[in-house]
C-alpha cells in the first residue's frame, strides 16, 4: 500500500512538472517527426520498399527520441539536489526506480501514440484493425524494455562528467538485442509475414523486459546510493 503510494507520488510529480513546462514531450514529438522527414529525404528511393525498411526506420527514430527524454528525466532530480532529498526519505530504493521508470514509460508511450499515426500517413502505410492491435502491443512491450534499461543507465550517466554524452554510449549497445527483435516484429507485421515469426520476436522482447526489470531491481540500490 505505502509502496504503491510512493511510486504513484513520484510518477505524479514528474507528470505535474511536465505539464507545467511541456518541454520534454513536445521536444520528443518534434524530434520524431523531424527524424521521419530527414529519413524520407535521405532514403527517398528505398522508401518505395517501405514494407521492409519501415520497421527499422520507426525504431531508429523512437530510440533516439527516447534518449532525449531519458537524459532529461534525472536532470531535474540532480540539479536541485532533489535526488538527495529522495534518498533521505524512507522509500525503498527499487521503488524510486519503478517510479522513474513508469514516468519514462508514460512519456514515451504518449509521444509514440501521436507519432505512429503520423508515420503511417507520411509513408502511406496501412494496417488492418487486427494488425494494429499487435503493432501497438509490440511497441508498448518494447517501451517497457527501453524505459527499464534507459532509467537504469541514465541514473548512471547523470553522475558522470560528460552526462548526456554518456547515455548513448552505454544505452545503445545494451538495447541492441531489443532493437533487433522490435524491428523484426514490426517489420514482420507491416510486410504481412507469418504471425508465428512475429510472436517469436515478441516473446523475446518480453523475456528481455523481464530480465532487465529484475537486473534493475537488484542493482538500483547500488546505482543510486553510495
Amino acid at each position: 500500500m505505502a509502496a504503491g503510494k510512493q511510486v504513484f507520488a513520484i510518477v505524479k510529480k514528474d507528470v505535474l512538472a511536465e505539464l507545467r513546462t511541456k518541454e520534454m514531450v513536445i521536444a520528443m514529438l518534434l524530434f520524431v517527426i523531424l527524424a521521419m522527414v530527414v529519413f524520407s529525404q535521405a532514403f527517398g528511393v528505398i522508401l518505395n520498399d517501405l514494407d521492409r525498411v519501415g520497421g527499422g526506420l520507426l525504431w531508429v527514430a523512437f530510440l533516439f527520441m527516447s534518449m532525449l527524454g531519458l537524459n532529461r528525466s534525472f536532470v531535474h532530480e540532480k540539479d536541485e539536489g532533489c535526488l538527495e532529498g529522495l534518498l533521505m526519505s524512507p522509500i525503498d530504493r527499487p521503488l524510486i526506480f519503478f517510479g522513474k521508470m513508469l514516468g519514462n514509460l508514460l512519456f514515451l508511450s504518449i509521444v509514440e501514440l501521436f507519432a505512429v499515426p503520423i508515420f503511417f500517413v507520411l509513408f502511406r502505410l496501412e494496417l488492418g484493425a487486427s494488425m494494429a492491435g499487435i503493432f501497438l502491443a509490440t511497441i508498448f512491450l518494447s517501451n517497457v524494455g527501453i524505459a527499464s534499461v534507459g532509467t537504469l543507465l541514465s541514473t548512471i550517466s547523470i553522475n558522470t562528467k560528460t552526462r548526456d554524452l554518456m547515455l548513448p554510449i552505454l544505452f545503445l549497445p545494451v538495447i541492441i538485442p531489443l532493437l533487433i527483435a522490435a524491428v523484426s516484429a514490426t517489420g514482420g507485421i507491416m510486410s504481412g509475414e507469418e504471425l508465428t515469426e512475429v510472436y517469436r520476436s515478441m516473446r523475446f522482447i518480453a523475456v528481455y523486459d523481464i530480465i532487465f526489470l529484475l537486473v534493475a531491481y537488484a542493482l538500483y540500490d547500488y546505482v543510486i546510493s553510495e
Binding site: 558522470t160 527483435a181 523484426s184 515469426e197 517469436r200 542493482l219 553510495e226
Partner: peptide
C-alpha cells in the same frame, strides 16, 4: 561502483545479444 554495475549489465546482455542475432530470418 559504476564499473561493477555496468560489468554486470554488460555480462547479462552478452547472451541476449547472441539470441537476438538468431531471431533474424
Amino acid at each position: 561502483r559504476f564499473g561493477a554495475i555496468f560489468s554486470i549489465i554488460a555480462a547479462v546482455n552478452v547472451p541476449l545479444t547472441f539470441v537476438a542475432g538468431r531471431l533474424d530470418s
